[in-house]
Design a protein around this nucleic acid. Structure first.
Length: 612
RNA sequence: GGGGCUGUAGCUCAGCCGGAUAGAGCGACGGUUUCCUAAACCGUAGGUCGUGGGUUCGAGUCCCGCCAGCCCCGCCA
């Protein structure tokens, strides 16, 4: 327990304060506390972070709701609670005398020496106060978390639609990994199904060499062929029939079909990998086809559990609580009338496999799907079926992490000028090109002379960071308006702003500040120093929140605010020119700020720079 | 028709378990550089939180109705 105090500061402190408050309320109002315990979980101290810096560090709002039942003015109640707090030595060790403010808020301010000691502890802690997740049960490994994200389709190029899933999924996986969860990052690529029937059928007629020789056509051509195939499939009934036959052959394991299929997959896979390498995203490919052998037994299982209903020739599970036009329950179709399986079947097989204990499955405890919000209904249905089939263990969590559409600056779905979907590759290229143009203009204006490798490195880092950060910094639920101008802006809540804060600190180090020097006792006097200290110490709580809520924008907001506070500090408080005791204390703050920004950005998948 | 999501400053968005005078950034306007990178900092202006009810000591936040936009709705994923 003691060991945890040092490494989990704000959180453990909040927990300590909460129980101290609870005890104080208990002593001040024993009858009210006792009756609250009878009816529920006892009185809630309603501890929250202070809403404004002038209110201290925390506020407890418990007095307000007590006013009515106790028939006392809330400020009087607050005073009674504070009296009890003041006799608690443990409380006095961490907090100054509480203030009662407004209608009856109890404002708590942490002792400065307590804050300084924690800064000291974090300087010596590579994890910056973020604890590793507890082992599960008796010394067992923490349970596996599956994060399913990116998921492009074979024989198509990755486009802007894959951007959010890839970036958000990667960041969530990074946060979970940092917390110590074993994470399986799954790329559920679309490598099976009807589309292959039509593509192979079409290629047989127009480019048979593509089905026999690796890389006979390039991926761009393949995309064109795919589009043509889709067109024919929609227009031409005979083509449809042939395509369906082709799917059956493929699913039946016909060697020629399988070879063609595997060539197409290989080719796409290499293209995907180029994007993932650029974005520094690691993924374990496990496409839809992986679950092929399990589809039949999924349907069989559902049948055995009595969930399966034959309707109109299709095998369905009817949903509870979800009705269609006629007021009747909506089905999830798991086997088409032609006997084929569809995506719902595959998704069910995947859920079952991921939760199932090894070696029959992954043995996951938590499964997270990062896909667009348009699939919310689908997942809700599939999740319900999995639940009713008993495939989700008691402690298992199955979560859809939805995100909104990527829109252009006109508010409509992002398209190229020609009206095509934007290729992810082109989008990344443009971000880097714009970052490079910006940088060159700046270098010229400032009369700086940098070599080409510097320019390339900075432009690449800034450009890609901008794309990632812009996406991650927005609450993912809402649609996302994509704008190069905004994401590459040098001021505001953008990647360049955050990167610049790191660069400033690196600059201090270059100019002779030894960031790694240790300081016996940290002392701070300036407002900006304390503001920075307080901001730095929030990091652990922010990570805990992202882990639970799966909202990366909370981390972004924090890093932005930390950068702002640091920039104010940098602007108003000299570091290198400060006198000896202050100088080393300020250098220590610089180092912890740099470490926090670097770690935070790395959890977003964003590397930092020394100079820019 | 049913379901989901969204609606907060001119624009793009935050807003945690319901808490104090609703916050940023951009844009606009005005200031700051003998000093660690000014890719920065400071200040000013800008709000009926879509709308009408309800619950509450207290509602942007919770509940119900309505309006608007986007998305989904049986054999595509």
């Amino acid at each position: 327990m003691q060991a945890h105090f040092a490494s989990e500061f704000m959180l453990s402190l909040a927990h300590a304060l909460e129980s101290q408050l609870r005890a104080a309320i208990d002593r001040a109002f024993p009858e009210a506390a006792a009756s609250a315990r009878v009816s529920g979980a006892g009185l809630d101290p309603q501890l929250a972070p202070a809403s404004k810096p002038e209110f201290g560090d925390f506020q407890a709002n418990a007095a307000l709701p007590l006013a009515k039942p106790l028939k006392q003015p809330p400020r009087q109640i607050a005073a009674a609670i504070v009296d009890q707090l003041m006799v608690d030595t443990a409380f006095n060790a961490i907090c100054l005398k509480p203030e009662i403010a407004g209608p009856g808020f109890i404002n708590l301010t942490l002792r400065p020496e307590c804050l300084a000691a924690e800064v000291q502890a974090r300087l010596a802690d590579a994890r910056l106060g973020v604890p590793l997740v507890e082992a599960d049960g008796d010394g067992q490994e923490p349970a596996l978390v599956v994060v399913d994200f990116s998921s492009p389709n074979i024989a198509k190029e990755m486009h802007v639609g894959h951007l959010r899933s890839t970036i958000i999924g990667d960041s969530l996986a990074r946060v979970l990994e940092f917390r110590g969860h074993p994470v399986l990052r799954l790329n559920h690529v679309g490598d099976w199904g009807t589309q292959f029937g039509m593509l192979i059928t079409h290629l047989k007629q127009v480019a048979p060499e593509a089905l026999e020789t690796a890389d006979a056509v390039d991926l761009g051509d393949l995309v064109v062929f795919y589009r043509q195939a889709k067109q024919r499939f929609d227009d031409d009934e005979a083509f449809q029939t042939t395509s369906r036959e082709e799917v059956v052959k493929l699913q039946g394991g016909d060697p020629l079909s399988l070879k063609a299929w595997s060539l197409l997959c290989d080719q796409s896979r290499r293209e995907f990998q180029k994007i993932y390498d650029r974005l520094d995203v690691r993924l374990c490919e496990r496409g839809e086809s992986f679950y092929n052998p399990y589809l039949e037994s999924v349907v069989e299982d559902l049948n055995v559990s009595g969930l399966l209903v034959s309707d109109d020739g299709a095998q369905c599970v009817f949903l509870e609580g979800v009705t269609g036009k006629d007021g009747k329950p909506l089905p999830v179709i798991v086997q088409k009338s032609d006997g084929g399986f569809n995506y719902a079947t595959t998704d069910l097989a995947a859920i079952r496999y991921r939760f199932a204990a090894p070696p029959q499955g992954d043995g996951a405890r938590r499964v997270i799907y990062v896909t667009d919000a348009g699939q919310a209904n689908h997942f809700a249905g599939v999740f319900q079926v999995a639940q009713r089939a008993g495939w989700i263990p008691d402690a298992g969590r199955l979560q859809h992490v939805p995100f909104g559409l990527v829109q252009g600056e006109d508010g409509k779905k992002l398209k190229t000028r020609a009206g095509d979907t934007v290729r992810l590759r082109d989008l990344l290229d443009e971000a880097v090109e714009r970052a490079e143009a910006d940088l060159r203009r700046r270098l010229q204006e400032e009369g700086r002379d940098e070599d080409e490798s510097f320019i390339e490195h900075v432009a690449t880092t800034v450009g890609l960071a901008a794309v990632k950060y812009a996406d991650l910094s927005q609450n993912r639920i809402t649609n996302y308006q994509f704008s190069f101008d905004r994401m590459l802006a040098l001021q505001g809540n953008t990647a360049p702003y955050l990167l610049y804060a790191v660069v400033r600190i690196a600059g201090i180090a270059r100019k002779g500040g030894d960031l790694d020097a240790t300081t016996a006792e940290l002392q701070f006097s300036e407002t900006q120093e304390w503001a920075l200290v307080r901001e730095l110490l929030k990091f652990d709580a922010v990570i805990a929140e992202v882990e639970e809520e799966l909202l990366s924008n909370r981390l972004c907001t924090y890093l932005f605010e930390l950068s702002q506070v640091f920039n104010r500090f940098y602007d108003q408080v000299p570091v290198l020119k400060a006198e000896p005791p202050s100088r080393s204390c300020r250098l220590a703050l610089c180092r912890l700020t740099a470490d926090t920004l670097k770690l935070g950005l790395s959890l977003l998948g964003i590397p930092t720079l020394e100079r820019m």
